[in-house]
């Protein structure tokens, strides 16, 4: 039998973690419980984070949002300000899993699972999200871009919990685009995905482009070369194709059961062409 603890607030969580330093935390359980089923785990201590009020909810301030790590995708999607201000994230969430998965799964879980196919990661990368990692004794802020070190590996230290995600509003980015290629429309793990933010001048010249791809490398792939190739140009098929070529070079996809590396690279680069439409 595994023990399962259900702390109601942060102080309770810290005391549980102090007593059970080996405990595994989970939020929605949509990754952890699936993994445990495969492994028949026994004699573990689990701490379920779903009831900790401090870890759920969305707060907006002048230049961005604070999102509790245990906020469910449903909660995020139902938030009108998130949909309005950061559609790139909302679009990604609306393709993630399925409605019941979105009712249970959390943004913090998606980040900490650190899957190359995590659907929130490309949008959070282009949004330059910061993570607040906390322990009983304090907290630190790390940028998401450095947090994930390899598939399934993060900078989280023992006893540390992701508490908040900080997103700044992408002011002036008129184009906010997300697309995922999967094997079906819902319940589809990304074969490739792409999030893009593009800021153009009134004359249509690209002033800044932020693009990130999922499922084409050990973690999210960005391509400064591709971004540079877009900057200063107008959005045209030729410009996008040139950038797509450069982007393909930054990718290091693998073959797996869902697709080959060749397809992943090709399709991920192709996704860039869609921003022109």
């Amino acid at each position: 039998m595994n023990r399962v603890l259900l702390p109601k607030n942060l102080p309770e969580l810290w005391s549980f973690l102090e007593n059970e330093p080996e405990a595994r935390v989970y939020a929605g359980g949509t990754d952890l419980l699936v993994q445990m089923r495969a492994r028949c785990a026994d004699n573990l201590v689990l701490i379920c984070l779903e009831r900790i009020a401090e870890l759920t909810g969305i707060r907006e301030d002048e230049d961005g949002f604070w999102i509790g790590a245990c906020t469910t995708f449903r909660h995020l999607l139902n938030h009108p300000r998130i949909r309005e201000q950061i559609p790139v994230l909302a679009k990604a969430l609306s393709t993630l899993g399925s409605p019941p998965i979105r009712n249970m799964a959390t943004i913090g879980g998606n980040i900490c699972t650190a899957s190359p196919a995590g659907d929130t990661l490309p949008p959070l990368y282009v949004l330059d999200a910061d993570l607040i990692l906390s322990t009983q004794s304090g907290e630190r802020v790390v940028p998401l871009s450095g947090f994930i070190t390899a598939p399934g590996k993060t900078q989280l230290e023992r006893g540390e919990v992701l508490t908040q995600i900080r997103i700044k509003k992408p002011e002036g980015y008129r184009v906010q685009h997300f697309e995922k290629v999967g094997q079906r429309k819902a319940l589809a793990c990304a074969i490739a995905s792409m999030a893009a933010l593009v800021k153009t001048s009134p004359a249509g010249v690209i002033e800044s482009a932020r693009i990130a791809w999922g499922s084409v490398g050990p973690t999210v792939v960005v391509s400064p070369d591709a971004e540079a190739a877009l900057t200063g140009k107008t959005l045209s098929p030729a410009v996008l194709e040139a950038a797509a070529d450069l982007a393909g070079k930054a990718m290091a996809p693998i073959d797996d059961i869902r697709a080959t590396a060749v397809y992943r690279r090709r399709v991920a680069a192709n996704l860039l062409l869609r921003i022109g439409t």
Binding site: R184, A186, A188, R258
Partner: peptide, 16 residues
């Protein structure tokens, strides 16, 4: 079998 479950053996859903 490399497609041992319903996450890898893909059958159509309501939107497909």
């Amino acid at each position: 079998i490399l497609t041992p479950d319903l996450a890898t053996f893909i059958i159509p859903g309501a939107m497909d």
